[in-house]
Simulated scan of single mutants.
Amino acid sequence: MTQVKVGFGGGCHWCTEAVFQSLRGVGNVAQGFIKSLAPHDSFSEAVVVTFDPEVIPLDVLIDVHLRTHASTSQHKMRGKYRSAVYVYSGEQADTVQRHIKDAQSDFDKPLVTMTLPFDGFKPSPEPFQRYYETNPEKPFCTTYIDPKLSVIRQQFGHYSVRC
């Protein structure tokens, strides 16, 4: 079984963590903060996803990401919630850039999601890890995470482990 890593950032890392934990083929989701190279070298909320591309292709992970955060909004919190796919190789960068360009036709507004080289990770404090898994009934989870998981069940049901 091949395991590949890629990073995703765009919204609250509690949400992003729960989204990717809900998918078949994802072996691990590390929640925390990712930085890239300048000018994107400040840490931003994100996750590192370890996945099996034979079970869930990178293109599907990108589609899930684009549809479960504000991927077309250049809102004022982008410093904390940078919309990005953090890549580990040039080949991965080419795949991500090509797929985001192809996915643009599915959106009414321009996608702001960047493809950035991964340059560092800091995990969230332990009490915040697996937030949805340990707090599914909390108002934050029912208000923000449950609707994202609903999108996954509706649009990516084949890959969802929570059908």
Rank of each mutant, 00 (worst) to 15 (best):
K5D: 13
K5S: 15
V6A: 06
G7S: 06
F8K: 08
G9L: 03
G9W: 08
W14M: 03
W14K: 00
C15Y: 08
E17L: 04
E17Q: 13
A18G: 02
A18W: 00
A18Q: 01
F20N: 00
Q21E: 15
S22L: 08
L23Y: 07
R24Y: 12
V26F: 07
V26P: 02
G27P: 02
N28T: 15
N28M: 14
N28K: 15
V29Q: 07
V29F: 08
G32N: 01
F33S: 00
F33N: 06
S36F: 04
L37I: 15
A38W: 08
D41R: 06
D41I: 04
F43A: 03
F43Q: 10
S44G: 01
E45C: 01
V47D: 01
V49R: 02
T50I: 03
F51R: 05
P53E: 13
E54S: 15
V55R: 14
V55W: 12
P57E: 14
V60I: 10
L61T: 02
D63G: 13
D63P: 05
D63S: 08
V64Y: 10
L66E: 03
R67I: 11
T68Y: 05
S73F: 08
Q74A: 15
Q74F: 15
Q74W: 14
Q74P: 13
H75A: 07
K76L: 11
K76H: 12
M77N: 14
G79P: 11
K80D: 06
S83A: 13
S83C: 00
A84V: 01
V85M: 10
Y86P: 04
Y86G: 11
Y86W: 12
V87I: 05
Y88P: 07
Q92H: 04
Q92S: 09
A93T: 10
A93H: 09
D94W: 02
Q97Y: 03
Q97L: 03
Q97H: 04
D102E: 10
D102H: 08
Q104I: 05
S105H: 07
F107P: 00
P110L: 03
P110N: 05
L111I: 11
L111N: 07
V112G: 00
V112Y: 06
M114G: 03
F118A: 01
D119W: 11
G120F: 05
G120K: 09
P123T: 12
E126M: 15
E126H: 14
P127T: 10
P127L: 02
F128H: 15
Q129R: 10
R130Y: 15
Y131P: 00
Y131L: 00
Y131D: 00
Y132N: 01
E133A: 14
P136C: 01
E137Q: 12
E137K: 13
K138E: 14
C141I: 07
T142K: 12
P147W: 10
P147Q: 06
L149A: 09
S150G: 10
S150M: 06
I152C: 05
Q154M: 10
F156T: 07
G157A: 13
H158K: 14
Y159S: 13
V161L: 15
